[in-house]
């Protein structure tokens, strides 16, 4: 599926003149209606375990391969065929993406600052996801092209396409009661049909209470203290 999209897009891109950043198309901007602001900590109960998910997908794929092999065996076919090889490759891809997903989505605490026109998601031990809703939606630069969007369905999407054909999508959605936040991290490889999504669920907490808080100043750099 992704391969088809990429082929179509590549063709489409040839039709456009590559004039650079200034001519990036302006897309319609949806303004935020959901406020994600606040402090969030991981809810282990609802968060998917990457290892369990990889194991589950592995078992499903393995079972499919075994079924195929049984059918071939019953039909008199002997030895490996192309379908089997493709399935094994898909299996490897899922495990690979899953392992990578596990290594890149580990933040246990999020601090989200949101205004009418921007959002910054500070992730413990990881870089901050940021989005300016007023600017052209696709932020093009030479490192990893970034896209972010606040959808009418209340989802915020952060997407980055990196060299080596790796695309990472972080999709944030708030529960109806506003007490849980789901961050779905999807990894897509440009030359594989498979993608891998890991859902991590966070719950609100009050900053400073039984916790620590931090402030950055030029004089002292990062200073943290225990709450009341």
């Amino acid at each position: 599926m992704i391969n088809k999209i990429l082929t179509l897009c590549l063709f489409a891109s040839m039709l456009f003149s590559c004039a650079g950043v200034e001519q990036a198309p302006k897309l319609e901007v949806d303004f935020p209606v959901v406020n994600f602001s606040g402090h969030w900590e991981i809810d282990h109960e609802l968060t998917e375990s990457p290892r369990d998910k990889i194991r589950w997908l592995y078992e499903v794929a393995k079972s499919q391969i075994e079924q195929q092999q049984r059918r071939q065996h019953q039909g008199g076919s002997i030895g490996p065929n192309l379908q089997n090889l493709s399935a094994i490759n898909d299996l490897r891809a899922v495990v690979g993406l899953g392992t990578l997903a596990e290594s890149i989505s580990r933040a246990n605490v999020l601090v989200i600052e949101q205004s009418d026109d921007a959002i910054v998601v500070k992730r413990e031990g990881d870089y901050a996801l940021s989005c300016d809703f007023t600017e052209s939606e696709v932020r093009l630069h030479n490192l990893g092209n970034e896209y972010c969007h606040f959808g009418r369905n209340g989802q915020v999407v952060f997407l980055v396409a990196l060299p080596e054909g790796l695309t990472v999508v972080n999709r944030m959605v708030l529960s109806a009661d506003g007490r849980r936040l789901n961050v779905a991290t999807t990894l897509i490889s440009s030359d594989l049909d498979q993608q891998f999504t890991l859902n991590r669920v966070y719950m609100r907490f009050e900053a400073g209470r039984d916790m620590y808080d931090c402030k950055f100043t030029l004089k002292d750099k990062k200073t943290c203290w225990l709450g009341q």
Binding site: I2, I5, L6, L8, C9, L10, A12, S13, M14, F16, S17, C18, A19, G20, V21, A24, P25, L27, V138, L140, H141, N142, N145, Y147, H149, V157, L159, A161, T167, I188
Partner: peptide
């Protein structure tokens, strides 16, 4: 979104 994104990737100005 992904289509548009990949399209723009092709057109992005590298240094």
């Amino acid at each position: 979104i992904l289509s548009l994104f990949v399209m723009l990737f092709a057109c992005s100005s590298t240094p």
